[in-house]
């Protein structure tokens, strides 16, 4: 026996997981609706993915394979510590390969490799309410959702065009789920918005501090809000990954020296590695 304290499987006690699963089921039944749940204190600070971690803990089984990414990367602090957390408290297999994972917990990105029906993607959400910046009262935003009173959502996009000439919102770009609820896709870049539409994988969103869970069931229509004469546009990236030469992936711009040198590379590290192993290293 080790000296380590004994945790229940995946840290949370069974009653808590049951409560979270109930919230998840309700969220799946009403796509895009923010279901309240009794968020627990987790052994990490708010803003580090406590919502996502609780959702993952509630759905994790012994034969699941877990992948955790932060900004598309498998090896940043947030991703490494959450992966370790579940390896230790649940003893599940972890992976960095997207196709091998059954549960992918993410902050910001949706993997470039298309997701399949056997997979669940869990998003960490800081601010679940898309109407929050326009309407600070929670009682009022709930009423607006209930009555589909979403005119104000377009005011935000209008302001963007009036000020910048185009819709400048680049992340947390609002979407309409299943032609009913307007939803904030957490801080994912709008580049990833089209991947949510008709996605074969189940998508779950957990906001720990705000105590909300919402979901997009597999094969659900997800439409980014826009204007007829200013349609939704994916972020365009003028460049190619300096490691794998990809032009289709979402690229990060990296400063390479203090002489103004810059390089692009894939934000999805697994996608980049797989591409490199197929084509061999670039000269």
């Amino acid at each position: 026996m080790s000296d380590l304290p004994e945790y229940n499987f995946a840290y949370l006690d069974e009653q808590t997981k049951r409560m979270i699963r109930r919230a998840i089921l309700k969220a799946i039944a009403i796509p895009g609706y923010q279901t309240p749940f009794a968020s627990r204190e987790m052994p990490m600070p708010y803003g580090w993915g406590t919502g996502g971690v609780q959702v993952t803990a509630a759905i994790l089984g012994t034969d699941d394979v877990l992948k955790v990414i932060d900004q598309g990367s498998d090896d940043t602090t947030n991703a490494v510590s959450i992966r370790k957390f579940f390896a230790r408290t649940a003893g599940v297999r972890t992976t960095t390969r997207t196709p091998e994972a059954t549960i992918i917990q993410t902050r910001h990105r949706i993997p470039e490799t298309a997701l399949g029906e056997h997979q669940v993607i869990v998003y960490q959400v800081p601010i679940p309410e898309p109407l929050r910046f326009l309407e600070p009262r929670e009682t009022e935003t709930r009423r607006m959702h209930a009555l589909e009173d979403y005119g104000v959502m377009h005011v935000k996009l209008y302001e963007d065009i009036a000020q910048h000439g185009h819709i400048a919102t680049a992340y947390a770009y609002p979407v309409k789920v299943d032609e009913r609820y307007v939803m904030d896709p957490s801080p994912t870049p709008k580049f990833d918005n089209p991947k949510m539409n008709q996605c074969p994988a189940l998508q779950l969103f957990g906001a720990g501090r705000e105590k909300r869970i919402y979901a997009i069931p597999p094969y659900t229509r997800v439409v980014s809000l826009d204007f007829e004469d200013h349609p939704f546009e994916r972020t365009r990236i003028s460049g190619a990954c300096s490691l794998c030469n990809s032009t289709k992936a979402f690229l990060d711009e990296v400063i390479t020296d203090d002489q103004g040198g810059r390089a692009f590379m894939c934000s999805d590290t697994d996608y980049c590695e797989q591409a490199r192993s197929r084509i061999g290293p670039l000269s």
Partner: peptide, 8 residues
Amino acid sequence: MAVGWRHY
């Protein structure tokens, strides 16, 4: 916009 105009 609240009554459905969608042309900027």
